[in-house]
Design a protein around this nucleic acid. Structure first.
Length: 717
RNA sequence: GCGCUCUUAGCUCAGUCGGUUAGAGCGUUCGCUUCACACGCGAAAGGUCGCAGGUUCGAAUCCUGCAGAGCGCACCA
């Protein structure tokens, strides 16, 4: 028996070495598995693409959970003989990464990106991304993820850039990507547009002011943003509102806080007669709703009174003031003029930018959009409909299935997707202009063309991930073999951001689904159920945890009892429990090596031993069905329970007198049984705890594969 | 406003979509230098399954209502 079994199991001395051995063996690569006879050349394929972590820093516990679940499926399928591919990669995460570097440069050098210039700034971001990439790769390996590194991808590398340009060009030619002057979510802090999904609403206290535009103006209106009223072009009332019916269609002139305005009274069903005075000042350039009202009544959209820097751009006293200051100034003026009628405290949802926290300023801008309602040529359906169909028809199954409703509900409310961003890091929009001319896709050879300054929303490139990583637009081997992928495993919090976009992009570019099953895991919270965050300081670093207790223990702690779609809690104590379990396996191994290392598998089993074997057969069937049914949380728990409380507590204990007794046949049978049960247990546990099981396996005297990783999963008929 | 989820032992959660006596981990109590393991072993206590109805031979599980917690979307003048 190897010396190491005389001491407790030491994950730190084992895990890194074993990962290196696995990697060197090449067996994470399905082609190599075929070459080495670990998978048949005609075996069915099984594929997962790793949701690419952002190159913004380090992995968190959510990543660790994702890796644990995906690696369980990948290792299980590999042991079942599938040509199993798990593609690694990272995401350039445009805004997020740029923001990190901008902050860093501001802090270190007190410079903005404009001080550095586009070229130099992008170089800095790339250097940061490179460094961050290295950290992330080593963290992925620490967790034991059996990824095929020969196929690693990055959302901003050359192959992925080619895919992005190709999709953009095809969408443009199909009329599905268009440039339009529309109201967008402008983030004055990040100086860029963002999509509707990147807006987060925060409830804050606010004041609702009721006022008149002028003394002779007949209607009072209520607003939380008096400073925007210099941009009003109309007052809207509900068509059935008897109070205002006589005024509809009339126009009034006023000078509002030095700004001359002309207001038309319009009737629109979007107005809620019970809110405020039942009359709304319409500011088309600075509110989506008002923009829509203006559309319906043929009013001007172009009365812009706020700049990209959230400053007033009007004649008179307000000019150049920040919106917050202008608000005060307008209220002052209203009071002085006797126009302010009421001031009340209310709670208001304020739109903020997810990444920068800046308050969103809706502004009309010339941007690129993906049209989700226009018919896709040759498909007889819009992108929206193409996103709905595979989920409704169950071609894509979402686990847990109640998220299918959430998904459908979201798609039905979807608006056109603004894909252009005014940031520098990312895929530059593949469009060139020369005067009135425009060229899309490939840079023109002639002089005089200039490329669009903007970059694409990061989700545009990650939306292509399942097929851009497999060689598309070339219709070559990997794409044919591994696409559509089998499983997409990710957090429910990015169902809309990412999962929906992948379905959109894949339906458009390939006319098929990107994956057959979506498994959504929940958030990983701390022991008190709080979200992990920097400000609370309650973050657990998966690499620290793995160093302290072993990656196997971390994986088990994250997986056991963690049902899909439900948040889970993690604490060091919980992980510690599974470190003890790894040690328990270690000691079982010691017992087996001491007592059954010379077991003869051919010996006939006694009646009692046959029963033990049958019980494990039953468990094997259950665990297999659980994994196939995506109940890994149950499979893990059952195996834990079997190894500890059945194999160790009962079977080994009752074996002691037998092994020391005089009945030679019973002894031989028991030795064969123990060797057999333990061999089986290691195989079943391997996807969950790959390191300790592999380490023990390699010390077993009789084994049918060099690596447990590619040993056969036990199939019981 | 529309929609979704949750409420089971002191704590954290399962309960594979109706079937003996409702399970696990942690915690608690008691006892163990038992020759695989103190990162351990043995034993024990602990639950009107949120509340009220209904369906059923049978309900933690299905239906209705109520209460509490959380989440998503929309609105937010």
């Amino acid at each position: 028996m190897p010396e190491k079994f005389l001491k407790p199991y030491d994950p730190a001395a084992t895990e890194g070495r074993l990962y290196g051995e696995w990697e060197k063996s090449g067996l994470f690569n399905p082609d190599e598995c075929v070459r080495r006879g670990a998978a048949r050349a005609d075996a069915p394929a099984y594929s997962i693409v790793l949701p690419p972590p952002n190159v913004t820093g380090r992995l968190h516990m959510g990543h660790a959970l994702m890796l644990a679940i995906e690696d369980i499926f990948v290792r299980y399928k590999r042991m079942r003989g599938f040509r199993t591919l798990w593609v690694p990669g990272t995401d350039h995460a445009a805004i997020a990464t740029q923001a990190v570097v901008e902050k860093q440069i501001k802090k270190d050098e007190d410079k903005s990106r404009h001080d550095l210039g586009r070229e130099e700034f992008v170089r800095r971001v790339e250097a940061f991304a490179e460094e961050s990439h290295g950290t992330i790769v080593s963290q992925l390996k620490t967790m034991g993820a059996s990824l095929d590194w020969s196929r690693e991808a990055f959302t901003l590398d050359d192959a992925r850039s080619r895919a992005v340009r190709t999709v953009f060009k095809r969408m443009y030619d199909a009329g599905l990507v268009y440039r339009g002057h529309r109201i967008v979510n402008w983030d004055p802090k990040g100086q860029t547009t963002i999509s509707d999904d990147e807006v987060v609403y925060e409830e804050r206290p606010a004041k609702l002011y009721t006022f008149r535009y002028a003394n002779d103006f007949p209607i009072s209106v209520a607003t939380t943003r008096p400073e925007t009223k210099v941009g009003d072009v109309a007052v809207a009332v509900h068509p059935d509102d008897a109070r205002y019916r006589d005024f509809v269609g009339k126009e009034y002139d006023a000078v509002f806080c030095d700004v001359p305005i002309r207001l038309k009274i319009v009737a629109d069903a979007a107005v809620d007669p019970s809110f405020g005075t039942g009359a709304v000042g319409v500011t088309p350039a600075h509110s989506q709703t008002d923009w829509d009202i203006a559309d319906r009544h043929g009013l001007s959209h172009q009365n812009i009174v706020i700049s990209e820097y959230a400053k007033m751009t009007v004649p008179g006293r307000l000019n150049g003031m920040k919106t917050a200051a202008a608000r005060g100034a307008v209220v002052e003026w209203l009071k002085r003029e006797g126009l302010l009628e009421k001031e009340e405290d209310i709670r208001q949802n304020v739109a903020t930018a997810e990444r920068t926290g800046g308050i969103i300023e809706p502004l009309p801008k010339l941007q690129w959009f993906v049209d989700v309602n226009r018919e896709v040529p040759g498909r007889g359906a819009s992108l929206k409909e193409l996103m709905l169909e595979p989920v409704r028809s169950k071609k894509i199954a979402i686990i847990p299935d109640h998220f299918e409703k959430t998904y459908v509900h979201w798609i039905e409310n979807l608006r056109d997707w603004c894909v252009s961003r005014q940031i520098w890091y990312g895929h530059r929009i593949p469009v060139w202009y020369r005067g009135e001319e425009i060229q899309v896709g490939v840079e023109p050879k002639e002089v005089g063309w200039t490329q669009d300054e903007d970059t694409l929303d990061t989700w545009f490139s990650s939306g292509l991930w399942t097929f851009s990583t497999l060689g598309w637009p070339d219709d070559a081997g990997d794409l044919k073999t591994y696409h559509p992928t089998d499983l997409l495993e990710t957090g429910y919090d990015i169902l809309f951001f990412w999962v929906a976009r992948m379905i959109l992009m894949t339906e458009f570019a390939l006319g098929t689904i990107p994956f057959r099953t979506v498994y959504l895991h929940g958030l990983v919270r701390d022991a008190q159920g709080r979200k992990m965050s920097k400000s609370l300081g309650n973050n657990l670093d998966p690499v620290d945890i793995a160093a302290k207790f072993g990656a196997d223990a971390a994986r088990m702690a994250l997986v056991v009892g963690n049902t899909p779609g439900t948040d889970t809690r993690i604490s060091e104590d919980k992980v510690k429990g599974y470190k003890h379990f790894a040690n328990k396996l270690w000691n079982i191994a010691r017992f087996i090596l001491e007592n059954a290392d010379d077991a003869d598998a051919a010996v006939p089993l006694s009646e009692a031993d046959v029963a033990h074997r049958a019980a494990l057969d039953a468990l094997t069937r259950e665990v297999t069905a659980d994994i196939d049914g995506y109940r890994v949380y149950l499979a893990a728990e059952k195996l834990y329970h079997y190894a500890w409380h059945e194999l160790a507590d009962n079977i080994i204990e009752e074996s002691k007198p037998v092994l020391q007794g005089a009945d030679a046949a019973a002894k031989a049978s028991r030795r064969a049984l123990l060797a057999r049960l333990f061999d089986r247990t290691l195989r079943l546990l391997h996807p969950f705890m790959p390191f300790v099981t592999e380490e023990i396996w390699q010390s077993l005297p009789a084994k049918d594969a060099d690596y447990l990783m590619v040993a056969r999963w036990p199939v019981v008929e």
